[in-house]
Amino acid sequence: MGSNFDGDLAVSTTLCHLGRPSGEKVPVNSPIYRASTISFETMAQLEASKADKFKQGELFYGRFGTPDVFAFESAISKLEGVYGTIAVPSGLAACVLPLVAFLKPGDHVLVTDSVYEPARVALDSFIQRNGIEITYYDPRIGSDIRDLLRANTKMIYLESPGSLTFEIQDIPAIARVARQSGILTVCDNTWATAICMKATALGVDIVVQAATKYVIGHSDGMLGLVCAGQEHYTALRAAANWLGYRVSSEDVFLASRGLRTLSLRLREHGQNGIRIAKWLECHPKVKKVIHPALPSHPDHAIWKRDFTGASGLFAFVLNSEDRASAAIFAEALNIFGLGFSWGGFESLVLPGDPTNSRTATRWNERGSLVRISVGLEDPIDLEADLKQALDKIPD
């Protein structure tokens, strides 16, 4: 069994076995390897390894990976249904890697207007500085994205649902246009993970994800994933080398451990999230709930078609337009924490304002936006905490 495990089994069963050591008398979990230098017996071995340093599982130098990293990457590749995965130091590092690997001066990239804000900063501050043109597009554009293509368009960057405002993109329609034009597609799939949506099955070429969130799942590690087919894998590995990316073996250990319970945790996050979203929809101080799994969401039909489940992250809009009301609410919470990131076992809120981070679309919603990450606490307790905090907002 172990690393050779395969089969047509439930995902929860598969996750318990992927990327584990195989053979007789082996540990159940991959040990942590701390290594920089790899020793070779002969010059021939050294030169052969150097010539093939981007090959999957090739032990060459610590920065290129160690056996525990290779085992984890292999597990993710099987889960995602791709040729290879590259583990990188953070989710933002994963977002940036395909841009560095495949774009050059004079190229043009189309990016969803709802993209993760740190990725947008990297695009505007770093990628654009290198002579690459960027056009942000309406995340609901669908197949009409063909009207934005240029002769020098090389990539379309998607994220579904979008950060903060949770638009669901018509990934198959966009991917179909891209393939017809020979354009590469990249999709950030952190919200759903491969458990709830397989982006490559919908036509995407490269999938990026912040394993910091649901994969690690305990708010104690930083890791990013870049998953791709064989035709793009080596270029991504080469770019990771240019950037000096190297992942911590300790963080990979945490991610490997988190992988075993990912399906179970995500199911609980999703069920709790939908319950809390429905509860918020009925509260008089909440103007609107933005959750793709609710029929009230404008993209619910697309979500239902392309996704097999939901995670615990969504947003809602308070009736009050005074941002101070959002602060009163957030600071009154006892169980929910106030902080960045999400996907851990603990529930979080984060007031936000998409107004100044959009150029292709406008955020016209009147009222204060709050992003909410529903954790693994009992939903009855979470509802009580939300109620007492909402009650503190002045009428």
Rank of each mutant, 00 (worst) to 15 (best):
S22Y: 08
L148T: 03
M43D: 12
H108W: 05
A35V: 09
L59T: 12
A75H: 08
E24L: 07
P31A: 08
Y136G: 09
V26P: 01
F54E: 04
K55Q: 14
T112P: 02
E24A: 02
F54A: 00
L46E: 14
Q128V: 03
E73N: 10
G142V: 00
V28D: 05
P89C: 09
S22W: 06
V121P: 00
T85G: 05
A35D: 03
Y83G: 07
P27T: 09
N152R: 12
G131R: 08
L149H: 03
P21S: 03
H108N: 13
A94V: 09
Y116M: 01
Q45E: 15
G62M: 09
K53E: 06
F40L: 10
V28M: 01
D124Q: 13
E24F: 02
V100E: 08
P118W: 06
I38R: 14
V121C: 10
G91H: 08
N130L: 06
L92R: 08
A101S: 10
F70H: 02
K53T: 00
V28T: 11
T135N: 05
S90W: 05
I32E: 09
E133C: 02
D68W: 01
A35I: 11
F40D: 08
H108R: 10
R63M: 14
E80F: 11
F70C: 06
E41T: 13
S114Q: 12
G57Y: 08
K154Y: 06
I141T: 08
H108M: 04
Q56S: 09
T42P: 09
D68S: 13
G65L: 05
M155G: 02
V82A: 08
P98K: 10
G91L: 06
D138P: 00
D68M: 02
G57N: 10
F40S: 07
I127C: 00
P31K: 07
T66Q: 10
F54M: 11
